[in-house]
């Protein structure tokens, strides 16, 4: 079983602060982390590799420093890592990102499954996975909370949707996107840590992937961000202080209306 897991390096959004005056993000000093959702994709891939044999390749598109998340994934147990990095990739939206990642999966050849996180916590788009599947012309199962069965020909997975859970079977090759809590990601092992220090991570650029300039990065991105603002905080609320019993009466007034008295 040959499994690819796409992983992204993201700023820890819990730490993101806003420059109140300019309304922009202060990104300096914000730690970069492996996108939390991708840990579940990685764990799921490793769980099945451990059962069926095969390899797990982690792949990331990003600046040279994105190598750090690939090494982290190797320390957790991934077998190989590939970094897609090129100045021409900068500014990619989900169209260009998925296009580039899909080309790299094609270049690898003979991949059975691609697993991605449901979403990246910086953009929160959840679009990259399905777009990779579209580029590869593969079927997809999104929002997977549990993989029930996997063999050389097919997969059965639980897909969580509004109001319930669909159990879906698909032929392989297939792309799936993983929800948080699909499993419990393992911690880096000592052996993994040693391996992650030594492993050679190939870097593939635009020319390695035989992609024209207008299909990557900013040039290959149909969307543009034109404005960034900070959410307006609407505070028109009245504040009530006082004894609990008094506060409770005011709260019930608000709930039921005073006329109910």
């Amino acid at each position: 079983m040959r499994i690819v897991v796409t992983v992204k390096q993201v700023p820890d959004t819990a730490e993101v602060r806003i420059d109140e005056e300019r309304g922009t993000l202060i990104r300096e000093g914000i730690p970069s982390i492996l996108n939390p959702f991708d840990e579940y994709a990685l764990e799921e891939a490793m769980r099945w590799r451990d059962e069926l044999g095969g390899t797990v390749t982690v792949m990331s598109m990003g600046p040279p420093q994105a190598e750090a998340v690939l090494r982290e994934a190797v320390s957790m147990g991934a077998d190989e890592a590939i970094l897609l990095s090129d100045r021409a990739f900068a500014g990619a939206d989900t169209w260009a990102t998925s296009h580039t990642l899909a080309k790299a999966v094609e270049k690898m050849g003979d991949v059975d499954i691609v697993m991605t996180g449901k979403q990246a916590i910086d953009g929160d788009t959840a679009q990259t996975g399905p777009s990779i599947a579209a580029s590869l012309d593969w079927p997809q199962i999104t929002f997977v909370g549990f993989v029930r069965e996997l063999n050389q020909d097919s997969i059965i997975a639980e897909r969580y949707v509004e109001g319930g859970c669909e159990v879906i079977r698909s032929s392989l090759p297939v792309l799936i996107t993983l929800l948080k809590d699909a499993n419990t990601p393992r911690l880096p092992s000592l052996r993994g840590k040693m391996k992650s220090r030594k492993i050679d991570i190939p870097v593939w650029g635009r020319e390695d992937l035989e992609l024209p300039e207008n299909e990557v990065g900013l040039d290959g991105s149909p969307t543009r961000v034109v404005k960034i603002t900070t959410p307006e905080i609407i505070s028109n609320g009245e504040m009530h202080h006082g004894e609990p019993e008094e506060l409770a009466k005011l709260l019930v007034d608000a709930l039921l209306g005073r006329e109910a008295e």
């Binding site: 959004t13 969307t223 404005k227």
Partner: peptide, 11 residues
């Protein structure tokens, strides 16, 4: 985006 810290307008 960014966990709701900012609002981005996209075209």
């Amino acid at each position: 985006a960014f966990g709701g810290n900012i609002l981005a307008t996209i075209v």
